[in-house]
Nucleic acid binder design. Structure first.
Lengths: 115, 115
DNA sequence: CTTCAGTATTCATTTTAAAACATACTGAAT
DNA sequence: ATTCAGTATGTTTTAAAATGAATACTGAAG
């Protein structure tokens, strides 16, 4: 009698700060790519994202975190670069932990949805 | 020593179906406004949304639910209208229940975030 | 058999966000 | 003092999405 379609709950998690959205999965991916490549430029390329956009995201994160998540090196050998700070590393870990807990709960609590 | 900014976790919940996103808070608001006004036209006005957009959302919901969430009356007294089906009423209730449980969990599990 | 308000559908326009482009700045190394 | 690759920033293009305008369709009621 039922069409028996499958429905599932999806959840998007992000961190909010007084001025609005502060840290979601997109910025986390950017942080991870900065860690991997050592620069905003290469992280952006990796993600097929415009450098300008990536740079702005980093700027925003750094200003709104209590302490910067990304340390930028200006000029010098190789033109400079960027690396994660201790706070940046921690942010990635905390975000994934929070996200994991919430998503697991969401799956566990919502079986057999019907619409 | 800390700047003591306040951070909170935000969660967005939606229902996914085989072909992608099926039902989120936006469509739920639309359903509620259809219930309130008795037509897609007036629901759209209420939400300052284009009729075209509202109509498409209803169409999508109806096709992808196992049974339609909105019953449309074509022509006749007053030109017709739209009202929620039993399934539509149920969808609103189920969605809010699921959303509430997940959001409460998210708040409960994430105190004292630092970035 | 005309009226009427809402549904159904197409097409042109506007708005918006993202990407692309361009250009200057930085500082270690040579 | 020139090179070099990445950071920093403004301006222009492009593309996507939402809106608005226009038109036909529907059927109960008078």
């Amino acid at each position: 009698m039922n069409k028996d379609k499958k429905y599932s709950v999806e959840v998007r998690v992000w961190i909010e700060e007084t001025e609005g959205a502060f840290l979601g999965i997109g910025k986390i991916w950017l942080l991870e790519n900065i860690r991997k490549t050592g620069s905003i430029t290469n992280a952006a390329k990796e993600m097929k994202m415009a450098y300008r956009q990536a740079w702005q995201l980093v700027e925003e994160m750094n200003q709104r975190a209590e302490s910067p998540l990304v340390a930028k090196l200006l000029g010098g050998k190789g033109g400079g670069g960027a690396k994660l700070t201790e706070a940046g590393e921690k942010a990635i870990a905390v975000f994934y932990e929070v996200e994991k807990r919430i998503k697991e709960f969401a799956q566990r609590e919502t079986q057999n949805l019907k619409f």
